[in-house]
């Protein structure tokens, strides 16, 4: 895949996550995410049957920068709404909004719901107050970059959303 390091494959990949394990109702989708290496920082990649699902999956990959997503209790919902002039910048704005809400609310999110309509995204992030002892967050995300930024359909008709976050 373009923009990815030449090094040996090295990814952290989610176990298939089902609706039951995510604590949310609705879809039974098997969502997946992974991290890919980028020098000092971290690449995030989310897959889904739809663009919405790929955006939900990459958000879980963002959580995994901080803590294993399974550690986060989806006790509170925070509404997030963003726009972007194209799908890629919409993705960057979505991730930046998550980073912003986590930082300013001192919360950590582990589950996400996304509805995209054109260049407009309405989402929800589910989480709880950051607990340093339990979540043991490793490193904060400064922002989503335009590096390795991609929102596209893959050959098998699925969607992939990816970018590098600066930590």
């Amino acid at each position: 895949m373009s923009g990815i390091s030449n090094g040996p494959p090295e990814t952290e990949t989610s176990a298939p996550e089902t609706a039951a394990s995510s604590g949310q109702a609705a879809t039974e989708a098997v969502r997946r995410w992974e991290h890919f290496p980028h020098g000092a920082d971290i690449g995030l990649r989310g897959f889904g049957r739809t663009q919405d699902e790929a955006f939900e999956a990459i958000a879980i990959a963002a959580t995994a920068v901080l803590t294993p997503p399974g550690n986060v209790r989806p006790n509170e919902a925070v509404a997030i709404e963003v726009t972007g002039p194209d799908p890629e910048l919409l993705l960057v704005n979505w991730l930046n909004a998550i980073i912003y809400e986590m930082a300013t609310r001192a919360m950590i999110f582990g589950h996400y719901r996304v509805q995209i309509d054109g260049w407009h995204l309405k989402g929800e992030a589910f989480g709880e107050p950051l607990d340093k002892m339990r979540h043991e967050p490793a490193v904060e995300m400064k922002g989503a970059t335009l590096t390795a930024l991609k929102v596209a359909r893959t050959g098998d008709g699925k969607w992939v959303a990816q970018c590098v976050v600066d930590v």
Binding site: L89, Y100, K142, A144
Partner: peptide, 11 residues
């Protein structure tokens, strides 16, 4: 603050 300024202007 710096992270937010950087993110906003980058996009």
């Amino acid at each position: 603050l710096g992270h937010q300024v950087g993110s906003e202007f980058l996009t």
